[in-house]
Structure formats: structure tokens, C-alpha cells
Amino acid sequence: MTVAEPATCDEELLRRSAGGDPDAFRGLVERYRGPLFRFLVRCAGDAHRAEDLFQETFLSVHANLLRFRPAARFRPWVYTIAVNLARDEARRRRVRPDLGGAVSRMRGAGSAEDGPDLVATLEGAEVDPLEAMEAAERAERVRAAVDDLPEKGREAVILYYYEGLRYHEIAEVTSVPLGTVKSRIHNAMARVMETLTQSLALRPVE
């Protein structure tokens, strides 16, 4: 089996996939395995859900290969699909909260992935232990603050910071004007900073 060369752009792989080349499609899935999965974990908050969403994203990509416009770029397109699927899934979860706690079945229950051990990530680094603890606590508060953001603000921050999308790409993915993207990111960051300030009992910036 031949895996597509790294130098082949997404759009070329997509074009070949539409022509029936299974290796090209495999190349696309492999290329996005890491970044898209991590994006979906951050959006969905759960690795199992992220796996399902990842598969659904590429099912949709495959079903719509021939509808992809030649002049468009694949990356914003695949993230658009992923964002819409993640939002639909979040809406379904809001309507159906867990009954009496975690809903489990006798035939095997899925469980949410535990959060990372932030202290463990600092193991081995030559830092002062107290500084390490404070950094870990701050990081955990940042993560909690990002989790608490409104869905669209959180999406915008994740797309901007973790996926490295530019403002106009985020606008395309989320189907809003450029100005709206900038204000969402600006407001989201301001909110996270304010939360961090309050939670760490810092003096507000005047």
C-alpha cells in the first residue's frame, strides 16, 4: 500500500480520492488523525465521543467528495464538518442529561476520559516544585475557564490557538463574518483572563 507523500497537498489528495483512489483518501484520514481528533476532544470534552465524531466527519467527507469545489481549501471544509457535528452532538447531550448520574448499561458502559494529570506533565522538568504546582493549578483553571466559555467562543479559541487557523479561515468554518470571529476570540480571551484573575485572587488590571 502506498501512502501519499507528505508534500502532496490536501486538495490533491481530495481530488484523487474523488477519482476513486483509496490510498489518497487514507492519506487524508491519516494526515488529520492527530489534529482533528485533538480538536474534537477539546470540543466534545470526551475522547470516546471524539472518536465517533472523527469517523462521522470522514464519512461525511467521503460522501461529499464530488461536491467539493475545486477552488476551495480542504482544511476549513473538514473543520466545518467537524464543528457542525460537534455542535449537533452537544445539542443532543443538552436535551438528554444523564438520568440519575452516569447512564450506564449492563452490557458495558463507556466512561469519560479522565483529565490529564497536569502535575505529571511537569515531571522531569527542572523547575521549582512550588512554581510547578502553581503553574499546574493555573493551567487547570485556564482549562476550566475555557470549558466554561460559550460554545462558539470556545470553538473560535480552539480553532485559533490549537489548530492555527487564521481569522478568515475560522470565519469560513463557523459561517460568520470576520469581525464576529475577532470579537468572539477577543471576548473569550477577556473572559478567561478575568476568570483567572478572580480565581487566583489577582488584582484586576486597571
Binding site: R33, P116, L118, T121, R138, A139, V142, M189
Partner: peptide, 17 residues
Amino acid sequence: RCHDVIAGLDAWEVPAP
């Protein structure tokens, strides 16, 4: 403080696929 937030974002590890 923005750098503090960025440090926090950097530390947000998620499981590998």
C-alpha cells in the same frame, strides 16, 4: 496575564488518538 493564559492553554493535554 495573557501569557499566563497561553501557558495554561499549552498545558491542556488531550489523549493521543
